[in-house]
Write a protein that binds this DNA or RNA. Structure first.
Length: 692
RNA sequence: GCCGAUGUAGCUCAGCUGGUAGAGCAACGGUUUCGUAAACCGUAGGUCACGGGUUCGAAUCCCGUCAUCGGCUCCA
């Protein structure tokens, strides 16, 4: 399971090559970090030329990055693990020594670091890592048996203290996490104090697999992906769509009460919109490539035809007047000159005059048409469209704050390797809204949005979350971030102040802002330990300016509003993916795709009629209820309903019918016994209404 | 996009070192009339992801493509 500190750890693991800084390790981390050294020892026994980069403990184990011509595959694990077991059995001490910078560099040059002894090739990554250790820091080495490594430690006392370990996977990773650096093989493993804990860990992984949203989504018939539709483009089955409808109902009610207005915009817009917004070029690689439309093609062809016809009339006219030295079959410029001159005359026939005018009319019109195809893009974000809605009507300070909400589809061209079930998709429905406000209104609007998050989290029982405040990187202005240094500074200062005053727990993460302004992401952890950005809240100073959005202030001057982008429920795709894992598919009644299933015992006509009457009553109240009139026995019907995680089952036998009752069974709770029909129905309706 | 792994019926999975593709559940047709997690019998269902190659013969071996998964990079 992941905790809040894991963000810091991951950042440290990614950004801190030497591990020469950072918080002290826990006992388990020391075991895992030591196991990484043992892994390197094992690999070197098999491939002495291996070059190691760094090998820290991570959330669920450890890894070591290695460069090696041989491609390590899971088939090699057994062999490597055998070498590792020998090293653990030898029970070598982890011996720490401190060396001078020059000594360390010398050893690296001799290939002795992350090695079993001197080698012909230098330990090149270690050489580089030594360079990055700050001058005032001590340089330490750790030895276990023959293996010596540059390492800040700490370690367990002896290799034998690594109770139980297992190699788990191999992946590739860029050296220092930078795409421009060489790719290394990253060997992952995990280690625990003892075999029992190791086994428990793998058993836990098996359990986690059962609540994986991709597995449950298929089993519960919530959504599907189809090759003909395309990767990352989920299709929602009726049961999944039911959840979407409930979430939208929730959002619409909440937002209506909070003074939002709903708008609707298109999925497609011309290139010019996104040039204005800055999505092109700042966001271009996340957008689907454009489609090109020859919008004026037909009109251009028609005009050109008419020009040709008119010109032939004019040419005829010219040639009829031609003197010996004049040639009517001349180039365009000469023709224009000649015809203009000819039109000076007084005796021009009417049809020639008409052709002349027709030609000029057509040529003038052509100037205003697009000869080049026009580009249209699928929208990746709603904001540019909403800005246009702001701009569609003159705005006064009295209109602010103006809050436009839309649950629209956006399409983003995520890289193929990024796609991940529902959590990372290419078509997404965002719980989006844009709040246009004055700087004075910013704080209360911003806090109101945060309050909305907290209410939602309470409703869904989300207890663990953290806000990440992402700021810009001054060095990437004009590349990743709009080039407005002063506005960035002011806005970040403003947001930081609001966050601090509101007392919300947050961490500040540099360089991860949106291109148009700083943002706050809300990270949550699904029940199986995955971490996600579920909601987002961003400040946009850039786009309102780029769109020249203004409102008339009290003093009759035009001012530019601030814009807050916010999506407390994130996207349906990710949010539902999260909820599936959060609830393990056992949705509360209000969200349950099938809220009630009626299970008659037997199929006697009166019993079926009674069951159907109960069904009709529920459906008349918009309850998603079904009747199982199959020929299964009652145990079979219950089994099937339980497997589909139907929330409430109403078992109806002869006894119930005669008492005008139903027997209530709730998924996960079992048989709750018979209840009067009215009472049971009322209870269901009340629970749905309260979202309890 | 990069590295690695995987791809057999709607689902879960068998199918040895190449010799004509199998089970359970689901579906469909019957029989059964059952009080809280699976009644019984039968029927149908697959171009073994796709495309090439090797071979007398390929689900199986080789190459390529696509998709998914584990990571990396990216990320509202």
């Amino acid at each position: 399971m992941r905790d809040e500190s894991s963000i810091a750890e991951d950042v440290a693991a990614a950004d801190e090559p030497s591990a020469h800084e950072g918080p002290p390790m826990t006992e388990l981390e020391r075991i895992r970090h030591s196991c990484a050294h043992v892994l390197a020892t094992g690999i070197l026994r098999l491939w002495p030329e291996a070059q190691f980069a760094y090998g820290p403990p991570v959330e669920n184990g450890f890894y070591y990055d290695v460069e090696l011509p041989h491609r390590i595959s899971p088939e090699d694990f057994e062999q490597i693990e055998a070498e590792m077991r020998k090293e653990i059995k030898a029970n070598h001490r982890f011996e720490r020594s401190v060396v001078s910078r020059e000594q360390a560099l010398e050893m690296a040059r001799r290939g002795e670091l992350a090695a079993l002894g001197p080698r012909s090739e230098p330990s090149k990554f270690k050489l580089d890592l030594i360079e990055s250790i700050p001058a005032n820091e001590e340089i330490s080495l750790y030895r276990n048996g023959d293996f010596l490594d540059l390492c800040a430690g700490p370690h367990v006392m002896r290799t034998g203290n690594i109770g139980a370990f297992k190699l788990t996977s191999v992946a590739s990773a860029y050296y220092k996490g930078d795409e421009r650096n060489p790719q290394l093989q990253r060997i992952y493993g995990t280690a625990f104090k003892n075999k029992t804990q190791l086994d428990e860990y793998f058993a836990m992984l098996e359990e986690a697999k059962k609540r994986d949203h991709r597995k449950l989504g298929k089993e519960l018939e919530l959504f599907t992906f189809d090759e003909d539709v395309g990767p990352g483009l989920p299709l929602w089955l009726p049961r999944g769509a039911a959840i979407i409808e409930e979430l939208e109902k929730l959002a619409k009610e909440t937002e209506f009460a909070a003074g939002y207005q709903r708008v609707r915009t298109t999925n497609l817009a011309r290139e010019s919109l996104y040039l204005k917004s800055g999505h092109l070029p700042y966001y271009a690689e996340s957008m689907f490539p454009p489609m090109e439309l020859n919008e004026d093609k037909d009109e251009i062809a028609m005009l050109e035809g008419r020009i040709v016809a008119a010109r032939s009339v004019l040419e005829q006219h010219l040639s009829s007047r031609a003197t010996d030295e004049e040639d009517a079959s001349c180039n365009d410029v000469q023709f224009e000159r000649a015809i203009n001159a000819a039109m000076e005359a007084n005796d021009i026939p009417a049809h020639v005059l008409e052709a002349f005018e027709e030609k000029n009319r057509c040529q003038t019109r052509l100037v205003f048409l697009n000869q080049q195809p026009r580009r249209y893009y699928l929208k990746a974000m709603n904001c540019p469209h909403h800005h246009k809605l702001f701009d569609a009507v003159p705005r006064s300070y009295r209109d602010l704050p103006l809050r436009f909400a839309e649950y629209g589809y956006c399409h983003r061209y995520e890289q193929s390797g990024e796609l991940f079930g529902l959590m990372r998709v290419r078509s997404l429905q965002m719980n989006d809204a844009h709040i246009y406000c004055t700087p004075e209104q910013f704080e209360s609007e911003f806090n109101a949005v945060n309050q909305m998050y907290l209410r939602y989290f309470k409703l869904f029982g989300i207890e663990k979350y953290i806000m990440r405040f992402s700021t810009h990187d001054p060095e990437r202005l004009g590349q990743k971030f709009v080039d407005e240094p002063e506005l960035w500074r002011q806005t970040e200062e403003m947001v930081r102040g609001v966050l601090q005053r509101s007392g919300i727990n947050y961490v500040e993460v540099p360089n991860e802002a949106a291109f148009y302004g700083p943002k706050i992401d809300v990270q949550v952890w699904s029940a199986i330990g995955r971490e996600f950005t579920i909601a987002t809240n961003q400040v946009d100073f850039a786009q309102p300016r780029r769109f020249d959005l203004t409102y008339k202030d009290r003093d009759n001057t035009d001012k530019t509003p601030l814009c807050i982008h916010r999506a407390p429920l994130g996207t349906h795709e990710r949010f539902i993916g999260f909820l599936i894992e959060h609830y393990a598919g056992n949705f509360p009644l209000w969200l349950s795709p099938e809220q009630v299933r009626i299970l008659p015992i037997g199929d006697d006509a009166p019993l079926i009629d009674y069951s159907r009457a109960v069904l009709d009553e529920l459906r008349a109240n918009y309850v998603r209820a079904e009747l199982d009139d199959s020929s299964d026995k009652i145990n079979g019907k219950i089994q099937r309903a339980e497997q589909m995680k139907v929330h409430t089952m109403l078992v109806i036998g002869k006894r119930d019918m005669e008492a005008n009752a139903v027997s209530v069974r709730v998924h996960g709770q079992g048989n709750l016994g018979a209840k009067p029909r009215d009472q049971a129905v009322a209870g269901i309706l009340a629970a749905i209404k309260d979202r309890s």
